[in-house]
Design a protein around this nucleic acid. Structure first.
Lengths: 128, 128
DNA sequence: CTTGACCTTGACACCAGTGTCAGGCGCTAG
DNA sequence: CTAGCGCCTGACACTGGTGTCAAGGTCAAG
C-alpha cells in the first residue's frame, strides 16, 4: 500500500511514517516509480512504534531494540527488550521523584503565603 | 560589580546572567566602557531567577511576574505571583498524573512478561 | 492534454535555556 | 608596547518528533 493509506490506517501522519521508515523501523521497499510500498504488517509496526514513543522511548532507542519488537503483534514483549523497559521505568520513577519534590517546594512557597492549601489532589488530564 | 564577579557570587554562568539581563530581569546599568555594572542586590535577583527556573517557570513567565518578585529577598512571595505558583502546581500535578499512568503502562508490559516485579520503590536522584 | 490527488526529497521551524565560538574592545601589569 | 584576562555582541548548536513548505515526479480521470 502507499504511504497515504498506511497513514489513514494507523492514524500516524505520513510525515511521521517517513521518519520511522528512514530510521529503518518499517522494512518497506520501493516501487519502480520510487514510491514506498508497505505490506499489511507495516500497520502494526507503525502502531507499535507510535506506542513506544508514547511510552517515552526515543526513535534512537527503538532502533536499538531487537527486531522481534516490530515483528510481533502480540502484547508480549520479546525478552531482549525487557531491560529497556526496566530502564525506562527507572527513569520514570526518577522523574516522579523529582516532580514530587518540586511539588513539595511549590507547596512550601504557597503554604508559607497562603495557609489554606487544598489536600493533595490530582488533576485529571488527557495526554495521549 | 562586573558580570564575572556576579557569576562567581551566584553560581550562575555569565552567559545565563546576560540572558536574564536581556530579558530585563536584573535592572543593571552600563559603565562608560559598555560593561554591565551590577549592584549588590543583583545577587539575590539572579538567585531568585535561577530558583524560579528550577521550579519550572520559563523566563517569559518570570518576566510577567510583578517586580516585587525580584525586589524582595524574603521567603515570602508577593501576592500577585501566587496565582502563577498555583497554576504551576496544577501543571506539576498534571505531569505527575500522566507520569503515574505511564508508569502503570510500563508495569503492565513488564508484569505481563515478568511476573516477579519489585515493589513500588523510588530511585533516589539529584537534579538541582 | 489538463487537472488534481498523491508521492518524492530536502530543508526550516518549534521549544528554551545554556554552551561555545568568533571577532573585537577595555584595562592592567610587565 | 604587549601579553593576558575580562568584557562586549551576535550567532550557531543542542534536543527530537512533528508540521509545513518548496519544487518536482507519477498516474489516473476527464
Amino acid at each position: 500500500m502507499n504511504i497515504g493509506e498506511l497513514a489513514r490506517r494507523t492514524g500516524s501522519s505520513a510525515r511521521s511514517i517517513r521518519h520511522y521508515d528512514k530510521a529503518g523501523l518499517l522494512a518497506s521497499h520501493r516501487r519502480d516509480n520510487g514510491y514506498r510500498d508497505f505490506s499489511d504488517e507495516a500497520v502494526p509496526q507503525v502502531m507499535q512504534v507510535a506506542r513506544m514513543i508514547r511510552l517515552g522511548f526515543s526513535l534512537e532507542e527503538i532502533t536499538t531494540f531487537p527486531p522481534c519488537m516490530l515483528r510481533q503483534v502480540t502484547n508480549a514483549v520479546c525478552p531482549d527488550a525487557l531491560a529497556a523497559h526496566r530502564e525506562r521505568l527507572a527513569e520514570v520513577d526518577r522523574q516522579l521523584f523529582d516532580l514530587a519534590r518540586l511539588r513539595e517546594r511549590l507547596l512550601t512557597v504557597l503554604g508559607a503565603n497562603e495557609p489554606h492549601l487544598p489536600p493533595t489532589e490530582r488533576a485529571p488530564h488527557e495526554p495521549s
